[in-house]
Design a protein around this nucleic acid. Structure first.
Lengths: 142, 142
DNA sequence: CTAGTTGCAAACATTTTGCCACTAG
DNA sequence: CTAGTGGCAAAATGTTTGCAACTAG
């Protein structure tokens, strides 16, 4: 399911939320950016558009989109900032290059299902979700 | 390799670092605490000891122990604080219960080696390390 | 018209820094 | 004696809040 800015906005509009300039801009940015963005990067991208938006407003819009399940929060191990990406992306993980800091997506086939079964068996812990991040050296830096 | 407060301190002393009251206290706490501690929790545990230590000093000691490779930093997805645990622990992952917030360790057999091989093959990305966190409901909360 | 949204300034939580005094070895 | 360490206060960083004004529908 490839989500577009329009599909995000219309599903929000259906629930009675407004289609404002900021919301349109942010939806457009997330729809055309597959890599996770920090609040700061998002503001940078917004600034390069027509209108300037307030920091607090951008944070509030991020919180709103997170609550609505449009985006999801990511926290990389080596960073202090939070990042966000479309929640509708296929389940995937991130490859973080320790040399150039670039982030790449990776989809694992048969994604940890065996491990999660064995965790239920051995620990009685029912995994509902997992978060996996690979660190290393990317093709370009090898 | 089960690390003790004494083994931590003596290896630091070998490198010419001092064995101070704070360092002894923190080493003792990490050696007897297998779950990852936040700076705040660490200070709480210190406070219940004899001497009170300054917040900044505790943060500096954490930074020092991290640089020396004694402890390693962990960032849980849903938290804002950083946590720390002994770096010498066997490689493991964390089960975070979404209901009671308790954290449990888990050691995976054959820990993602297949996946890392396939990442190298398909992406040309050489994984040196990974970070995996499972969220779900623990035995007690199920 | 009015609930949703915005900007501004100020608060907040966590962590880091500068500076000078102190102490373990 | 002296490099490593500690305390204090202040700064920095990233994020959140209160409040009054504004606007999309």
């Amino acid at each position: 399911m490839k989500e577009t800015a329009a599909s995000i906005l219309s599903s929000l509009a259906d629930q009675g939320f407004r289609m404002t300039k900021l919301r349109k801009a942010i939806a457009g940015i997330f729809a055309s950016n597959c890599l996770p963005l920090s609040a700061d990067e998002l503001m940078g991208l917004l600034r390069s558009g027509e209108t300037a938006f307030n920091r607090a407003t951008v944070y509030r819009e991020i919180a709103f989109l997170k609550e609505q399940g449009v985006i999801q929060e990511i926290q990389f191990l080596h960073e202090r900032v939070k990042r966000y990406e479309l929640a509708s992306l296929d389940h995937h993980h991130h490859l973080v290059c320790l040399r150039c800091n670039r982030v790449e997506d990776i989809v694992l086939e048969n994604d940890l299902v065996e491990q999660e079964k064995s965790i239920l068996k051995s620990k009685g812990f029912k995994v509902t979700n997992h978060m996996l991040e690979f660190h290393g050296i990317c093709r370009g830096c090898l």
